[in-house]
């Protein structure tokens, strides 16, 4: 069963400063239970793809379609996409001053519950629920009392993204360079978190520059994105080859 089908997708940056085409006919299908990795040179459009899928207002779709679990993804607002099960761990998570992390997590969780006509979780039950997730990531409970990403180190922000992944349990997790900025131990813990999330009904799209994450979270497919298109697809050995030879081989 396919989780997402991206068909011939073209997108431009649509801001006051810029009007450039970034995605130029991108095709990708991801099925339940699969892990896909996307690699590619800096500036090739990897983050753009992730933000376009999540519905960032800076981008305009000029062509193509995206079917997400049977729904036309591009018809949905960003919050509806999220509540329908699409999650993006950001390459650069933003800081939201003064907003308590725990309250935010509960609000996000309950938004999804409400959207899906399920019962919202009360604060006490949520405390237990979140404690279990914290343990998976070996995060200290203090993180819950801090303000959302405010003053977090680079690695802490990435961990906090994965905490949100575990909290929201989406059907598609797009992880944009979650491994960048993590120390050796944190990389392992985060990988364990990603693996704890995986099951046969969901899927992962990893955007990464390095093999090391893929040692822990094994991809079924590796794609090379360049010039706004997928120019090559292989199995996990492609990542090893790229690591050795660079993008010159594709």
């Amino acid at each position: 069963m396919s989780i997402i089908e991206i068909k011939n997708l073209e997108a431009v940056i649509d801001t006051e400063e810029s009007n450039t085409q970034i995605l130029k006919g991108l095709n990708l299908t991801i099925n339940a239970g699969e892990v896909h990795a996307i690699m590619g040179p800096n500036g090739s459009g990897k983050s753009t793809l992730s933000k376009v899928l999540a519905g960032h207002p800076d981008y305009r779709i000029t062509k193509g379609e995206v079917i997400f679990q049977g729904k036309n993804l591009l018809d949905l607002d960003p919050d509806e996409r999220a509540n329908s099960g699409l999650f993006l761990a950001f390459q650069y998570p933003v800081e939201i001053p003064g907003v308590n992390n725990l309250n935010f997590l509960r609000m996000a969780y309950n938004s999804k519950m409400k959207f899906n006509n399920q019962e919202e979780m009360d604060p006490l039950d949520f405390d237990d629920f979140i404690e279990e997730k914290l343990n998976i990531l070996k995060m200290k409970p203090e993180f819950l009392e801090r303000n959302l990403n405010e003053g977090f180190s680079g690695g802490e922000k990435k961990k906090n993204e994965i905490l949100q992944l575990l909290t929201l349990n989406p059907s598609l997790a797009i992880l944009d360079e979650t491994d960048s900025g993590l120390d050796i131990d944190a990389l392992r813990v985060v990988s364990e978190g990603i693996n704890a999330y995986r099951n046969k009904n969901n899927a992962v799209l990893l955007i990464t520059h390095y093999q090391r994450l893929l040692d822990y979270v094994e991809p079924d497919y590796v794609h090379v994105l360049s010039g706004g298109k997928i120019i090559k697809t292989g199995d996990k050995t492609l990542a090893l080859e790229l690591e050795k030879e660079g993008y010159a081989i594709v």
């Binding site: 999220a82 999650f87 939201i96 907003v99």
Partner: peptide, 29 residues
């Protein structure tokens, strides 16, 4: 910032709730 709103939207929080969340964070003190 648009990116703050988008971040909260991406976590399923409506724009309306996102704005009031950001504002109450700003007013917390």
């Amino acid at each position: 910032s648009e990116d703050q709103l988008f971040y909260l939207n991406q976590r399923g929080i409506s724009t309306e709730d996102a704005i009031s969340t950001i504002i109450s964070g700003f007013c917390k003190d």
